[in-house]
Design a protein around this nucleic acid. Structure first.
Lengths: 238, 238
DNA sequence: GAGTGGTCTAGACCACATC
DNA sequence: ATGTGGTCTAGACCACTCT
């Protein structure tokens, strides 16, 4: 069942993308759109709010609703799972070397990060991520086995993300990320051919399922030259 | 005039941050909260939607509303103007040294970034940002003078952000940021007491007004030890 | 069946911008 | 004065989860 406001949203978005509503022109008023779509003004507002949050339109009290841009979004969550740590164009060719894939008892510190009990079993995974056959990312991943059941070596070798979404049919809800710059550790020095004068970009990620369980805590260290983290921040309305 | 849903939002957020509503516990139902705050359930929903979008809570139909995390983000737009490059607690004491404040003709590359014509006049600003009287951020800012009119030395010394929002009464709508790690340049080496073996964190920001004009392109270089960039990515429902 | 959140309505009133 | 969007209400109905 698709909500009515989503239908209104999609219809108006299509018209903006097709430039039927041109940039800098004013959209019909809320009441007019409500009449066209046979719904209440509040339902129209909900649809337009979504377009505002995506940066397509601007609403001004006393003036009207105006088209701001007509191009699709490029910052969506489909680029999750540390893929945002690599430049986008070359992600297709990513391969992995699995350095570690073990089940361990969870330490106290990690239990706090994963929101589980100390001693609960977890996967401990270390992978080198290769892009164009060159080591570019070192990834340390911890996941509770009670949340991600039945993970096997082949999934770790290929794509854990694919296993979670397509085979376990779990839904990723959100991710909290923190970005830093730090010195490489011994493993990174080896794979990245670095020494103590070099540095790496670090992304620490906590990822949630829609059940609000944390399914992953990970640290990804990248070669700075290839590292880029991009995001768009939209001003809260009110 | 502050909307009621913002008051409800702030009140509930405070209780989450203060852990009065603890992580993993269920919040009162929408009706209960509506009763407490003497408002309608829809107003409560609006407040809770905002908390969902910030990753504090998760709402599950048929189950209830649950606290997911209790720490604030450092990348919300209220802390815009590169302040997110510094840890939040110490931002209050920020001072500036203005190294450069000039009006120039815009180069071709910069014209592309600012979406203006080459040769248009721009402000070219360089500032050292001090926190606890220590140089921690070097900030290079370019702004079109046709967008930000009448900028004076005192504004650059104090807060450009304040001048734009409070004196010009312009509204910042969004910002696109990219984070990197790079080697310091000569100025940064000098102010940060660094050499060629050190590195800095870099935030490149393009900021938009609600008129959809770009008012700023800036590069901020920070000492890694104090640098942290945090954000939460939320999966869209539809 | 009972309890929860999600959607939707019609109408009222307020805040803001323009004429 | 008029027209615009923003907020808020009370109530209805639907979808989902658990017992």
């Amino acid at each position: 069942m698709i909500p009515k406001y989503m239908e209104v949203y999609s219809s108006i978005k299509d018209k903006i993308v097709d430039q039927e509503y041109a940039i800098n022109t004013m959209l019909p008023t809320g009441e007019e759109l409500a009449s066209v779509y046979n719904c209440s003004v509040l339902t129209v507002k909900k649809a337009l709010d979504k377009l505002v949050s995506e940066g397509f339109i601007v609403r001004k009290r006393g003036l009207g609703t105006f088209v701001k841009r007509s191009e699709g979004n490029k910052a969506d969550i489909s680029s999750l799972k540390n893929i945002h740590t690599a430049k986008r164009e070359i992600v297709r060719d990513m391969k992995s070397i699995v350095l570690k894939f073990e089940i361990e008892k969870c330490s106290e510190e990690l239990a706090e990060q994963l929101n589980i009990e100390p001693g609960d079993f977890i996967y401990n995974i270390e992978r080198v991520r290769l892009i164009e056959d060159e080591p570019r990312i070192l990834e340390y991943t911890w996941m509770p086995i009670n949340v991600i059941k039945g993970l096997q070596a082949k999934h770790v070798q290929e794509s854990i993300y694919y296993y979670i979404t397509k085979e376990l049919h779990l839904t990723i809800q959100s991710a909290h990320v923190a970005v830093h710059a730090v010195r490489p550790n011994e493993i990174e020095k080896q794979y990245f051919h670095m020494d103590d004068n070099d540095f790496v970009a670090e992304v620490i990620q906590t990822a949630y399922l829609d059940s609000s369980e944390i399914f992953e805590y990970s640290i990804a260290r990248s070669i700075p030259k290839y590292f880029e983290f991009e995001t768009t921040i939209i001003q809260e309305l009110y």
